[in-house]
């Protein structure tokens, strides 16, 4: 019986889809059988981040309405054989799936997979409620900005009200230089305010833009710093005690040089 984890944030543009794609891929690289579910109906994107946009035939709405068998809607990854995507519908309305249907879908998927990772749409309305309906655990993604942390706080409250206890936090897009000069809130500052368990930190890095351009999750690149951060997060999800990665500037700098020579 697998685990159903929802990736959510409230605010848009903080990196939910990138986080989902990378955690899912990293778990699959560890040998876990993974399915990622895009619940952002009408604005699907997980398919392009994963580079699987050309393979879509059926989507989540087809699957819950019985237009196809669930297995037909699952897209097998081209790199990892134990990784699958259930894409969102692009042309249908947000309300095309109900919460009950989501619960039923998650129940079916967790029979087949070790991890069901749900990519939640931005906002706190219908799409959010659907995305969390079948989830047992939650990952809240935020960035070191007032608006993103505020929304994370609201989402944590809503998750607790929905009895998804103890959500875990990922702080994305940390810029070490700015933290050092006091122009960006630090990890400690944010944990102080939100008072939740930290699952991981991810440095702001050009590698993310490049990997999204190519449709190759950055965890597949062994030289990528955010890739390392997401691989660490996946190991923590599997119960390993992995120390937080050092965000030290020197390492970042040499890391970049190293990846230059590696031809990335």
């Amino acid at each position: 019986m697998g685990k159903v984890i929802v990736v959510t944030s409230g605010k848009g543009g903080v990196g939910k889809t990138t986080t989902t794609a990378n955690i899912g891929t990293a778990l699959a690289m560890m040998g876990q059988k993974v399915v990622m579910v895009d619940t952002d109906i009408g604005l699907r994107n997980l398919d392009v981040v994963l580079g699987l946009e050309n393979r879509i035939v059926y989507d989540i709405v087809d699957a819950v309405r019985g237009n196809c068998r669930l297995k037909q809607a699952l897209i097998k990854d081209k790199r990892l054989e134990n990784m699958f995507l259930l894409p969102a519908a692009q042309t249908k309305d947000k309300t095309a799936v109900t919460s009950d249907q989501m619960v039923e879908l998650c129940d079916k998927l967790k029979d087949e997979f070790d991890f069901v990772i749900i990519d939640c749409p931005a906002g706190i309305e219908h799409g959010f409620k659907n995305a969390i309906a079948g989830a047992e655990e939650a990952i809240v993604v935020t960035t070191p900005e007032v608006s993103a942390v505020r929304d994370a706080d609201r989402i944590i409250g809503l998750l607790e009200a929905a009895e998804i206890r103890a959500p875990k936090l990922i702080i994305n897009r940390i810029r070490v230089n700015m933290v050092k000069t006091g122009d960006m809130m630090s990890v400690e500052d944010i944990l102080d305010i939100l008072a939740v368990e930290l699952l991981g930190i991810v440095p702001d890095d050009d590698a993310i833009v490049i990997s999204t351009n190519r449709g190759e999750p950055t965890v597949l690149d062994s030289n990528s710093r955010p890739g390392e951060a997401f691989r660490n997060i996946a190991r923590r999800i599997c119960g390993e005690a992995v120390p937080l990665m050092s965000l030290d500037e020197k390492r970042g700098f040499f890391g970049k040089i190293k990846s230059l020579f590696a031809g990335d």
Binding site: V146, V149, R150, D153, T181, G182, M185, D189, I193
Partner: peptide
């Protein structure tokens, strides 16, 4: 002052109201 101090104080106030 460092802008993160401003950010933290603004967040603290906004969250007291939100909560």
């Amino acid at each position: 002052e460092a802008s993160k101090t401003v950010a933290k104080e603004r967040l603290r106030l906004v969250l007291v109201h939100d909560r």
